[in-house]
Amino acid sequence: MNAQEVPMPGGRLTQEDRRLIATWLKDGLGYAEIARRLGRPTSTISREVARNSGHSGYRAEEANRATGERARRRRKPPARDVAAVSHGYGRNPEAVRAFETEFADIMVSTGLPRMTARVLACLSVSDDGVLTAAELARRLQVSPASISNAVAYLETQAMLRRVRDGRREQYVIDEEMPQRVWAESVRANQEWVKIARRGADVLGIATPAGTRMDDLSRFHARINDVMLDDRVALYAADALTALAALLHAGHALSAAALSAALEWDEERVLAALWVAEEQPHIAGPVRVVRAGGEYRAVAAVERLTEAQLAALGS
């Protein structure tokens, strides 16, 4: 067969193409000439030979069989038509699912592995924040092994916890998750301080590498000081909840009374109230007033002019 008799390219290499490649290779032709005769890019021929050559070199039958096996391994079962999960509250299930995908994509863009991000997003949009491995696998259409790997990573980052419900294992995201993540971030940052300081000692602080490690240690030490002293990031959401509780009560409450009403330990209540007092920008026009061991929420009237106060009758 001469070059004019060879069909022009279109789609994948055929068994006849592979037979011709094997023949021309035995004849000593180069990849470029074989590609010209087949009307294919040279890269197509070089990849074909590289992928499908065995101990005995390139053989058409073996190449065809190997290509078929790879195609079968890559072939996925038809996608199931999984209905969007209904979360109640009159929400649009499709809008919830679209948000779940968008939320996962944002986490992936910050460096989280895609499957890990999908699991975290799926749990996050669940109102009770509790799903089993089977439920996650069914919802995300992935294998249980994929869920297990993602959960293991999230657990190391304190982003979820495991609980037993009889024979089933459930994965939980609760209201204390931000606090756990923050505490883990503090711990991880402290490890950076330690290892960088050790590197400076080992390398010698007077050397370029040792100076670099010393700078890194000092940088993370400064971050550590901010993280340990600044309770705002940790308790900002709690501060808003405590303010809402005080506003709803309409009268002063003690920390113990708030603790009982919110079902929080008193230390958490006091931290939330401290943030509300010390960082008034968090609550905007509402602030906490403390008197005689009790707290109440009041409007920050200093934001209003005298004319506005007068117009409001106050």
Rank of each mutant, 00 (worst) to 15 (best):
T116K: 09
P9Y: 11
N52V: 02
D105H: 08
R180T: 02
V85W: 09
R18E: 05
L160N: 02
D265Y: 05
S86W: 14
T44I: 10
G30K: 06
S185T: 12
E5D: 15
R180G: 02
A307S: 12
L262Y: 04
L136Y: 00
G10T: 15
E191S: 05
A152F: 06
V186A: 04
V172D: 04
L140H: 05
L262P: 09
G88M: 03
E100Q: 15
P208K: 00
L20S: 05
L234N: 05
T211V: 09
A256V: 11
Q190L: 09
L203G: 01
I223C: 02
G39L: 06
E267S: 15
Q279I: 09
G90E: 03
L228T: 01
S56V: 04
A50K: 13
G90I: 03
Y171L: 10
A257N: 07
L253N: 09
K76R: 14
V96D: 11
A183I: 07
R303W: 13
H220E: 00
N52P: 01
N92T: 10
P144A: 02
L253H: 10
V85A: 14
H220D: 00
L304W: 07
R80M: 13
V96H: 06
V288A: 05
A66F: 10
E155M: 13
A66I: 12
V142Q: 00
S259M: 06
P41E: 15
V172N: 06
L273G: 03
P77E: 09
S217I: 04
G90V: 02
E267V: 10
A299P: 12
P144L: 03
A260T: 14
E48V: 01
D230I: 00
M177D: 03
L247W: 14
W182R: 10
T132C: 02
A297V: 08
S53N: 02
D225K: 03
R167K: 12
A299Y: 13
D27R: 15
P208T: 02
R222K: 12
G30M: 00
L247R: 14
L120H: 13
A261K: 15
S124T: 15
G54C: 02
A255M: 05
P9G: 10
A35N: 01
P93L: 01
H281F: 15
A300T: 13
A196N: 08
A256N: 15
E191D: 10
V181T: 04
Y89G: 12
W274Y: 14
G30V: 05
S109M: 04
E62T: 12
D214T: 05
M227L: 08
S109Q: 09
I173F: 01
A63L: 08
T67E: 13
A245H: 07
V119E: 06
S109N: 06
R40W: 06
A209K: 07
A311R: 11
Y171H: 13
N52L: 02
L234A: 06
A221N: 01
